[in-house]
């Protein structure tokens, strides 16, 4: 008992950032335990079994255990969508900065490029790419980034244009600060909340688009993600099975997006605190 009390007091003395790290570790531990405890994600004769003692979250239409599916899909979903959504946002940010800061012609070129990319359905691009090569894990991440970045450029450019008129940026420019300095210390911190919102939006989109890639021959359809599990569940919307096929992956995806939002807000507060300390 004493031990617990002590440890809980240690927990309270920890700096705020570390608390969430500990919670994260706890989550990982629980998940790995679940992964060990839950049966293999293999097809079996136990099809569409409702949740019960053997399959805690039931099974899908080819007898795969939903719980182990949700757990197995975790690393795929998180790694692929976090990286490709980040990559997409980075590409978009660079283009938006260039389009906002530099000459009108450059801006026009970039914006027309975005127009074209937005008009041509991304499915065509994916089909073309799938015909050319068989991407591996990293290839899939790149492709997802490639079909996501252009949606962010316009929004970002508008926000950046507004920032450029602010006094701090104008002042820094007067003091001979370079554009990259301004971007790093004035523009990006100011637009951080918008970046975060766009990032979460990208995450959600890439997670769902990832599910579609398997149907276009780009990935092995057995590449398990929450998105693909949700897509498979859609066939059972008329049957009771939808509740245990759709809800678990959907819930996981929601929690994941909320976590990202939370972490992003934390980061924002942290950087605010840092900058106020230094000044």
């Amino acid at each position: 008992m004493k031990q617990i009390l002590r440890s809980s007091s240690i927990f309270q003395t920890l700096p705020k950032g570390w608390k969430s790290v500990l919670i994260l570790f706890g989550l990982v531990a629980v998940l790995s335990l679940l992964m060990i405890a839950s049966p293999d994600y293999k097809t079996s004769r136990d099809t569409l079994a409702p949740p019960g003692t053997e399959h805690w979250l039931g099974t899908n239409d080819i007898g795969q255990d939903v719980l182990s599916g949700v757990v197995l899909a975790l690393p795929n979903t998180i790694i692929i969508s976090v990286v490709s959504a980040g990559l997409a946002l980075m590409i978009a940010l660079v283009f938006a900065l260039v389009a906002a800061i530099y000459s009108r012609t450059l801006a026009a070129i970039i914006l027309r490029m975005v127009d074209i990319a937005q008009i041509v359905p991304s499915i065509l691009l994916i089909l073309l790419l799938a015909a050319w090569f068989q991407p591996g894990f990293t290839g899939v991440i790149l492709i997802l980034a490639l079909i996501a970045w252009y949606d962010d450029v316009r929004v970002l450019r508008a926000i950046i244009l507004r920032e450029l008129t602010r006094e701090n940026v104008q002042y820094a420019r007067q003091m001979q600060a370079s554009w990259s300095y301004c971007a790093r210390y004035h523009i990006i911190p100011a637009i951080w909340p918008s970046l975060l919102a766009l990032y979460v939006q990208n995450l959600r989109q890439t997670a769902m688009k990832l599910a579609g890639l398997g149907f276009l021959g780009l990935t092995d359809p057995r590449l398990l993600t929450w998105g693909s599990m949700m897509q498979d569940a859609l066939n059972y919307m008329y049957e009771p099975a939808w509740s245990w096929l759709l809800l678990p992956p959907a819930l996981c995806l929601t929690v994941f997006l909320l976590c990202i939002l939370f972490v992003g807000q934390r980061l924002e507060r942290y950087s605010l605190a840092m900058s106020s300390e230094t000044s």
């Binding site: 089909l127 799938a130 021959g217 092995d220 359809p221």
Partner: peptide, 15 residues
């Protein structure tokens, strides 16, 4: 399970 690695692809008709 038998020891044969499989690379499964679902494709559109043309492909």
């Amino acid at each position: 399970a038998f020891g044969l690695e499989v690379d499964l692809r679902l494709m559109e008709r043309a492909a």
